[in-house]
Design a protein around this nucleic acid. Structure first.
Lengths: 134, 134
DNA sequence: GTATTTGCAAATGATTTGCAGTGCT
DNA sequence: AGCACTGCAAATCATTTGCAAATAC
């Protein structure tokens, strides 16, 4: 119901395929096309890759979801939410959100530029605490 | 000469193709595969796309260059240098570097995570001062 | 009922690979 | 000389398109 409303709020029809996609993104946090396809098929075996691509594009266009692009990795997608950074472990591959107040933390850089800032994307990569122990 | 040294320092052979690629990246700041191909051909008409891809990969592997991935845009490449943020104008498309001291600016987020940080990638997008005037 | 969305198959675009010949060190 | 690199053509992988049938509202 919650997800149906998300779609309608963006004037998109709430098809079961779209609901499945959103549900998975919500559950996974960040997910790539391939994994998304594998997973959606489990609940919705008839879905086609073309439909998946079309819907991902449609949802990107209305900013219901966002691309997460990480150097050295395939694009992942996430449901739009408050601004946050992404932190990736180069050892185990886990990708997590971390809190971030970009406007204040990056203020110096932004001030210098005099840009009207609309979006900030931050990806931090390194080794997570668990992998450091090994 | 400077660029030849760059290659040798990473134990790569200094072929004219590679020198041309590095020279262009250095000149352009950030450049995508297609533009790189068009430009390299002007000086080096025999170069193949395959060679371009192979060299870009090779140089990424040794971290001589870096990927710059921006939501909604094709990957660009740049020569590795001190940490900095990228700022993109959504109106005119210009991509610039801006100074950034990621470790200190992002310290709060990083502290929380306990990660051993190796790399920070920041992309800010918005409207540049010139485009705001229009 | 109408406009949108789906799924298929085919088209297009992007990147990679194998291999024979060439060129760096 | 020997290994790495280049260029070509073909293979592979990723994404998009057109269209008829199905579905949301």
């Amino acid at each position: 119901m919650k997800h149906e409303h998300l779609l309608k709020h963006h004037q998109l029809k709430a098809t079961p395929q779209r609901l499945a996609i959103i549900q998975l993104m919500h559950y996974a946090g960040h997910i790539g096309i391939d994994e998304l396809y594998q997973e959606v098929r489990k609940k919705f075996s008839s879905i086609s890759l073309a439909t998946l691509y079309k819907n991902v594009h449609t949802m990107l266009d209305v900013a219901l979801i966002r691309e997460v692009k990480i150097p050295g990795h395939k694009t992942k997608y996430e449901i739009s939410k408050e601004s946050h950074a992404h932190i990736l472990c180069k050892s185990c591959g886990e990708l997590k959100d971390v809190p971030l107040e970009p406007v204040s933390l990056l203020q110096k850089s932004i001030d210098i530029s005099h840009y009207k800032v609309e979006e900030v994307s931050v990806v931090i990569s390194g080794i997570c605490p668990e992998c450091q122990k090994k």
